[in-house]
Design a protein around this nucleic acid. Structure first.
Lengths: 207, 207
DNA sequence: TAGATTGTTAATCGATTAACAATC
DNA sequence: TAGATTGTTAATCGATTAACAATC
């Protein structure tokens, strides 16, 4: 691959895939049609796809089933991924029962907490384990993806442990910005910051 | 304001604010120190702040209390914001009890669901109302911010209703990309897409 | 005054958009 | 062949970084 892929192109790929799911019954879809379905420009659609290869046929468009498979292959969602969940509080348990994950091939395989009242409980078929077992279990299970939904305190330590256990990709719901080695990735979902962005929008609009 | 503010500068402002909270005991902080606390470059820190005004003193740095107040004013988090929650399922109830919101001055004032088993329940002091009361209640309460944590089906309709009720800013946890008028903003938190970004990272790393 | 650090200007980098030759 | 639409090139836009004159 010669061109570097812009970060923002990857989530767009997911959205193109969703749009393709809506295009049942047809064989081909054009960048123009994908544009209408996703609200990205047709130029953006074509450009994004060329970051990953040549999937279209001039004059016809993109063969839907082929492009779907191609996107799954690029994203790595053509296979199932095991996920570890750390933190079985309100947010953690909500994520445990989140239907969207299973649908996309993500399976929460084990869950951990440090609260004795939660350890041993079974939720959605998953028994919450003591966090002291985190490193051993996750590394034995070969899990590469983790979701961190603990309290802020100790979150960096949890992430350090996950990295030691071999986890390479983390979805972090705590407000900390964790230090991690370069070969790992952390995506932060920071709910307070999102609300603050909304507050900024409203405040600015009034000015 | 002459320079347009880059979208990404706003969440950084929130992170600068958090860093300032950690700098207790000192009067001034330099862009270099803020850089170390936030992992953004010092140039970025100074640049970001100048989008909103002149807050520093050459040779000394930024007066901490003053800058904190300034950032609160810019973000609009110097006042409290009422929030409506639509969808009192697992995710919705988790958000209802999310401590971070209250801390930043966001208060969920009312919650709605269309499920008879949830309507009437009281969670965190909030009684879940029938979604049919959404438009009336939200507009009477003058709520401007809403969180949508419903199922995918009907999410667009919920958002339309919120807009009619006068809501201008929405945090959307459903996978839909809602159509809204220009004067409103929707921030999408799309959990499946975040996991897919992680899968892409892992897949690419192996290649 | 000397030292420190801002705010701003210019350079660079990166991503998106527009236009169109290539191609089915 | 004529029409449609891709993939690519060049232009534009926007954001970040680097450098430094201004200033406390």
């Amino acid at each position: 691959m010669i061109n570097k892929v812009p970060q923002a192109a990857v989530p767009r790929l997911s959205l193109y895939y969703r749009a393709l799911l809506e295009s049942r019954g047809k064989d081909y879809v054009s960048s123009d049609e994908l544009s209408k379905l996703t609200n990205f420009t047709a130029a953006q659609v074509r450009r994004d796809l060329t970051y990953f290869g040549q999937f279209g046929t001039p004059g016809k468009g993109y063969e839907i089933e082929g492009l779907k498979k191609a996107i799954l292959g690029i994203l790595g969602t053509d296979k199932n991924w095991d996920v570890a969940l750390v933190g079985a509080g309100n947010l953690g348990t909500a994520l445990l029962s989140y239907k969207g994950f299973k649908q996309q091939g993500f399976k929460i395989l084990s869950a951990f907490d440090n609260d004795l009242r939660k350890i041993g409980k079974t939720l959605e078929g998953i028994t919450v384990q003591d966090i002291s077992e985190l490193e051993k279990t996750v590394s034995e299970q070969g899990i590469q993806i983790a979701i961190v939904a603990t309290s802020t305190e100790g979150a960096q330590e949890v992430i350090d442990t996950l990295i030691r256990a071999g986890v390479k990709a983390i979805l972090n719901f705590t407000p900390i910005r964790a230090q991690t080695p370069e070969e790992a990735i952390v995506l932060n979902i920071d709910l307070s910051i999102e609300l603050e962005r909304l507050a900024y929008f409203l405040t600015k609009a009034k000015a």
